[in-house]
Simulated assay, not measured.
Amino acid sequence: MKVNGVNIVEKETRYSELTEYELQQEIAQLKEKARKAEQLGMVNEFAVLERKALMAQAYLLNPEDFKPGEIYGIEGDPGVYFRIDYMNGVFAWGYRLGGSGQEEALPISMLNRKK
């Protein structure tokens, strides 16, 4: 970013470094920006902001609550289930049941306990 012709380096803050309150503020701002993008028909911008909000939400959850071998529903994808093989931080690595069999990582905020 340039201010009066001078390059200014902005420090990018990681979600893992934010407090619970700061994460909640960030999520609220992202959701508001996403709402505005949706109203303006900016589909790609909306999708990016929604994904960022999901990432921030993952840092409000406890990864220890998500267990390898268990099956979870996927937020926003009804009827599709995900089996966790292993955890890495706030990401669950595994496979969609009945899917292509390709391993993928989902932020834990996208997972719902299967009923």
Rank of each mutant, 00 (worst) to 15 (best):
Q57P: 02
K36T: 14
W93C: 04
Q25D: 10
Y95S: 04
V80N: 15
E104C: 07
W93M: 06
D77W: 09
Y86V: 12
F82N: 00
Y21T: 15
L23G: 03
N44Y: 13
R14V: 08
R14C: 09
Y59I: 05
K11P: 01
Q102I: 13
Q102R: 12
A92I: 00
G69K: 07
R35S: 13
Q57D: 06
P68H: 07
N62W: 03
G89S: 14
S109L: 14
N44D: 14
L60F: 08
L40K: 11
V3P: 00
G101N: 15
V9E: 15
V3R: 10
G89E: 12
L18W: 02
L18P: 03
R83V: 05
R14Y: 10
E64C: 06
E12R: 10
G41C: 08
A92N: 02
A28P: 03
I8R: 12
I71L: 05
I84F: 03
L61M: 07
Q29H: 14
Q29C: 06
K31V: 02
F91P: 01
Q24C: 04
M110A: 03
D77T: 08
K52S: 05
V6K: 14
N4A: 10
G5E: 09
S16I: 12
E70H: 08
S16R: 13
N7E: 15
N88A: 14
M110Q: 02
A53S: 13
E26Y: 05
N62F: 05
G5F: 04
L23Y: 03
A28E: 09
F91M: 13
A58G: 07
Y81H: 09
E38Q: 10
V80A: 11
L61F: 10
E20W: 06
Y72A: 04
N88I: 14
A105P: 03
K33V: 02
E50Q: 07
E32A: 09
V6R: 10
Y86I: 09
R83A: 05
V48D: 07
L97M: 15
E103F: 04
T13I: 09
F82D: 01
N4D: 15
K114M: 14
Y95G: 00
R96A: 02
E70G: 04
I27L: 03
E45S: 08
R35P: 02
E17N: 09
K67F: 12
T13F: 05
R14A: 13
A56L: 06
V80C: 05
P68K: 05
Y59K: 04
E45A: 10
V48C: 01
L18G: 01
K52Q: 04
Y95H: 13
F82C: 00
E50C: 03
M55N: 12
R83G: 05
K31M: 10
I71E: 12
K2G: 03
K52C: 04
K52F: 06
S16M: 12
